[in-house]
Design a protein around this nucleic acid. Structure first.
Lengths: 124, 124
DNA sequence: TAGCTCTTGATAATCGATTATCATTAACAT
DNA sequence: ATGTTAATGATAATCGATTATCAAGAGCTA
């Protein structure tokens, strides 16, 4: 992955536009708006190289295949809409999460996932 | 699944003893302590039927295959140990989780996962 | 305890996700 | 503009998880 191809540019553009974790299918669909010939293998290859570079990283949500988002964002959590299935960023974080574990457990990270309906799906 | 077999009794016994979400491999290993001939297919079959009955239910944690735990416990969360990989129950729950979503988002459920080291793995 | 048939255990098959293959296309250095 | 070769796209192969198959074993009823 050294050459600056239009496919790679399109994939980077997709991640730059959407500030939320994207599945491989979402990257493929959005990327095809920019490069119609884009194939799923190229999506996987570029997601892997962009991850290796640290430009994106994977976001694992319960019971679903990995999504990916732009690296460097401040600490945040995610919301999954039961209507459209999209994952959204949530800036807020509950306080004192580390205190929730019983004595003897050392907490070094945490993940919070909210479920419900996004603004668009609430009305439909 | 109508007959009361020793395999099925062993699998129920495993879930009754361990108050935390168990992977299929954990159920197999613990079940073999009680019934050495136990096979993985029987574990899957009984997990499915016990789930259908509502006696257990699946617990999805980020990036991992489903675990299962006894139904009927009060609301709680989970801790995953980076040392041994086991999932533990956490009784506590952060307050006001629903308020963390931006206006327009309707939250109806949430999951919190803590990561770190369990008491046993902290010392090793 | 005999017999019916559900359950088990070994393993082949399947499933969704991801990676490998390979002929073709296209960056980019000269 | 051209040659080199990395990247692409179609799709076959693979991977881990789960389900299906089927002969053998064991609950349960009479």
């Amino acid at each position: 992955m050294e050459r600056d191809t239009k496919q790679r540019r399109a994939i980077r553009e997709v991640f730059t536009r959407e500030h939320r974790p994207l599945s491989t299918d979402e990257v493929l669909a959005a990327g095809r708006m920019l490069v119609p010939s884009l194939g799923i293998a190229t999506v996987y290859r570029n997601i892997n190289s962009l991850s290796d570079e640290g430009w994106i990283h994977s976001v694992e949500l319960p019971g679903e295949p990995a999504r990916y988002e732009r690296s460097g964002k401040p600490h945040h959590h995610h919301f999954i809409c039961r209507g459209c299935g999209l994952a959204f960023d949530i800036a807020a974080c509950p306080a004192d999460v580390e205190r929730l574990a019983p004595p003897g457990f050392a907490v070094d990270a945490h993940e919070l996932v909210l479920y419900g309906h996004c603004p668009g799906c609430r009305q439909a």
